Simulated assay, not measured.
Amino acid sequence: MKDSEFIAKIAPYAVEDMQRSRIAASLTIAQAALESAWGSSGLTVKANNLFGIKGSGPAGSVTMQTTEYVRGKAVQVPAAFRAYHNWGQSVADHSALITGGVSWNRGLYSRAIGTDGRTAAREIAAAGYATDPNYAAKLIRIMDDYNLYQYDEMKEDEEMSAEDKQRLLSLENELKEMRTLISGLSVSRDTLKTGVQEQGQSIKNIAERLVDIEGRAEMKVPAWAEPAVNAAVAAGLLDTPDGGSYDFYRLITVLYRAGLLVTE
């Protein structure tokens, strides 16, 4: 795979993920290129694993030889690595690691979030993501050589009309009110589900309002929204899963995680 082909394939996943995680797309692309040898590593070819994350993933796991140090000596040992159905799932898992940190320090990589690609590269290296002392320099070299910073530029507002901006603002206000309401609920889950079923039409109306702005950012169902979309379909609140906007899938996910999407 040519470098340009690799970037063209991963960039949409990195940009979409950046809107949710606030991790610079340039960092995600550069790390994926470096860790996967531009998509040619055996782990990437066999399991769509771009970042060498171990364990079991959405598509199970694959066993590969890896270098470990035993009593100071490098030895080759078999290890299970996460397998994914596509690169998007691998990117999402990588971002979950950056945003969630490790068990002993959840904020380990927090300084790499919400900043530009160069700064993020230096911060993630300083936090110990890799043992290579030149890790940050290698990432920045890739960013510079391929101008990956262009993928960090959010042009969504420039493409939105004033009317759409107002609609989006109204939607965000509604979501804030909904989050406040959900956080203050003290009734049992069963009572909550009963109330939602009785007020199902109100939730449908909120979903229908999103149709007005779907045209500006239609997309396939993101991997992180699939459980929520499936629940919405099962509850009879959604007829056509694909073709929604990022905000649409975000709202559906908020409702799902709050336990509001129930099947009658």
Rank of each mutant, 00 (worst) to 15 (best):
Y109F: 14
T99R: 15
D144C: 13
E218S: 15
E5F: 07
T67Q: 15
G114V: 08
L97H: 07
I203G: 10
K193H: 12
L260Q: 10
T115C: 14
E163S: 13
E264V: 05
K220Q: 11
I140M: 11
E35V: 06
R22K: 15
L50C: 06
M1I: 08
L168H: 08
E208Y: 05
A234E: 11
T115N: 13
S188V: 03
K2H: 13
K2W: 06
A228G: 08
A30L: 14
L210S: 11
S188D: 14
Y149Q: 15
E174I: 08
P241S: 05
G114W: 04
Y13F: 15
K204G: 12
E5I: 11
F248V: 04
K155T: 10
N173L: 09
V15H: 02
R189M: 13
Y246H: 10
G72I: 09
N230K: 11
A96S: 13
V91D: 00
N134D: 15
G101Q: 05
Q150E: 14
G100S: 10
A231R: 04
S186D: 15
Q150D: 12
S61M: 11
G101K: 05
E153R: 15
E123F: 05
I182Y: 07
R82D: 03
G55T: 12
A59Y: 00
P241Y: 00
L238D: 03
L251A: 10
D190P: 06
E16Q: 09
L34A: 14
T131M: 09
L237I: 04
G128A: 07
Y151P: 12
E123T: 09
P12A: 02
D17G: 06
D190N: 15
P222M: 04
A125P: 05
E68M: 13
L168G: 06
Y109C: 09
R82Q: 13
D157V: 06
M18Q: 10
K176T: 12
N134Y: 02
Y84V: 00
T191V: 14
Q65G: 15
V15S: 07
I140R: 02
I23C: 11
L251M: 13
G107M: 03
G101H: 05
E158M: 10
